[in-house]
């Protein structure tokens, strides 16, 4: 995921830390498994609310979904942090060098998911890729996949929508990244990259490869949890709270006319609103999930999600430093078209 950087540290005293997950992960699984019964018991017997009332069901929904999603998030972010410690932007660049267009696009999109890098590194990364001769189209596959398919979005989709939707999102997101990059590669847009990018002569970067022990990787996992969970938990709680209110109080089929299957224009509209909007997935996925229960169509919801996470105005402004306007426009329109196709497809299939 793009937003977060990891920290590795070599503190011998932290050695013991590697045993903590051995205790905490089974504990998290146990809480996760018994959560539903626990919450039901609490709502029905401890605070003794009347079953079926709007308020009761809203409270039940909130009490169940918030801990569920937060536990999932902590565990997954920890594991992903460890996985990411095996990858780096430099290694990814090396792997992509000299790869032909289509194969390169597939690799770049996949590596985009696991390579750790901050969104603030997007420019040096772009220059680094271009400079080492990686085709522009392949570079774009990386830049599309990196923000779009991230662990926070996947955890929320898995926790609130189920594994099918999460898998659907990840696989279609990957396809969009691969094909957008491939299309951009075919369009021969190299002349729309700022000239100074091509003039940069990158130094031979020979960072002494530090020996990374497994302890360090565990530490990376911890850092990822602290970094990410501390940033997004508040949005998740707020999103689920709003979702709970929607679940309890908004009438059935309320969204059918606005975001339903029948309204074909809702997909392009969702993308048009989603592209300039910059929001993390954490806050609005729970809200979308609630709207889905009120007649919104899955394809429309997915399209909105992808365009919000995958494309954003701040990102475009950063990229404007190295790309001329026509290239930005091509980039946005190709990716937005891909997202709309996915949206229509799902509204049609389901």
């Amino acid at each position: 995921m793009a937003e977060y950087c990891n920290t590795l540290s070599k503190n011998e005293q932290e050695n013991k830390k590697k045993y903590i997950p051995l205790v905490l992960i089974p504990l998290a699984v146990a809480v996760y498994v018994f959560l539903e019964q626990g919450v039901n018991f609490f709502v029905d017997h401890v605070i003794n609310l009347e079953k079926g009332r709007h308020l009761t069901e809203a409270i039940r929904f909130f009490l169940y979904d918030t801990p569920k999603v937060l536990i999932l998030l902590t565990v997954i972010v920890f594991v992903v942090g460890i996985i990411r410690s095996y990858f780096s932007a430099e290694k990814t660049r090396k792997a992509l060098e000299g790869k032909p267009l289509f194969v390169g696009n597939i690799m770049a999109a996949c590596l985009g998911i696991v390579t750790p890098f901050c969104s603030c590194s997007a420019i040096p990364l772009f220059i680094g890729f271009v400079e080492s001769g990686i085709p522009l189209g392949v570079t774009f596959s990386f830049l599309v996949a990196a923000p779009m398919i991230n662990e926070v979005a996947l955890v929320l989709l898995f926790g609130l929508f189920g594994w099918k939707t999460a898998l659907l999102y990840a696989s279609t997101g990957l396809l969009i990244a691969i094909f957008s990059g491939w299309v951009i590669g075919r369009l021969k847009v190299e002349r729309f990259v700022e000239e100074w990018v091509y003039e940069i002569k990158s130094g031979d970067f020979q960072m002494v490869e530090q020996k990374i022990t497994f302890n360090d990787r565990i530490q990376t996992g911890y850092t990822a949890v602290v970094d990410i969970v501390s940033k997004v938990w508040i949005y998740i709680v707020a999103g689920i709270a709003v979702g709970a209110v929607i679940h309890g109080y908004v009438p059935e089929n309320f969204m059918a006319s606005l975001m339903g299957k029948g309204a074909w224009w809702s997909v392009p509209l969702a993308v048009a609103i989603g592209v300039p909007l910059y929001s993390n997935a954490a806050g609005f996925i729970p809200i979308l999930q609630a709207l889905l229960g009120k007649g919104a169509a899955l394809g429309t919801a997915l399209a909105f999600m992808m365009s919000t996470i995958g494309l954003s105005l701040p990102e475009m402004i950063i990229l404007k430093k190295v790309m001329k306007l026509p290239l930005i426009i091509v980039f946005v329109s190709v990716v937005a078209t891909g997202i709309m196709i996915v949206g229509f497809l799902f509204n049609w299939v389901y």
Partner: peptide
């Protein structure tokens, strides 16, 4: 880029890149 760094922040001591992409 002259240092060949692709991920920021990076720490350079006496012209030598020590760390890149993490704190």
């Amino acid at each position: 880029m002259a240092y060949g760094v692709m991920t920021t922040p990076a720490l350079v001591v006496d012209g030598e890149v020590k760390v890149a992409g993490k704190i």
